[in-house]
Design a protein around this nucleic acid. Structure first.
Lengths: 65, 65
DNA sequence: ACTCAATGTAATATATAAATTGCATATGGA
DNA sequence: TCCATATGCAATTTATATATTACATTGAGT
């Protein structure tokens, strides 16, 4: 479940806490998603993407390298 | 949780059962996702997209109208 | 009318996403 | 050095995605 959330969030100058509040989850959930240890729901993926002004593909599609 | 899974699956001439088997879930799960009553996990969204030769954005991004 | 494949749907059970709480650590500024 | 912010991480609980089983409905073909 690798993704581009962390790098995108940092570029947007947001903390995990700020992003979490905006999308309605806890800081821990954002942390685990960024670590790739979580398999988030589509709704949450979309909320994060919109908050970071990205699309689903930009954050989650074929990020394995 | 509206999406383009159903129309894409039909265009690909697959049944719910066939798609479900390919992505490792049950037919009921596919049915509920197509109905928009489910909030699937990212892993499942990706598996479905790959099976239908689409990207996440094509199936799940801004499909509300 | 009958059959069968495909789909809708509902009840209950199970797995796991996410919440909650708490503590540790790193870092930068006063 | 002290303090505050940001992050990592672990244990337990809660909410919900998904499985399982089962039955109903629809539509095409014969």
């Amino acid at each position: 479940m690798k993704n581009n959330v962390k790098i995108t969030r940092i570029k947007a100058s947001m903390t995990q806490e700020q992003l979490a509040r905006k999308v309605g989850v806890t800081r821990q959930t954002i942390g685990l998603i960024e670590k790739g240890e979580y398999n988030p729901t589509l709704q949450l993926c979309i909320a994060i993407a919109k908050e970071l002004n990205k699309t689903l593909d930009e954050l989650y599609w074929e990020v394995e390298l």
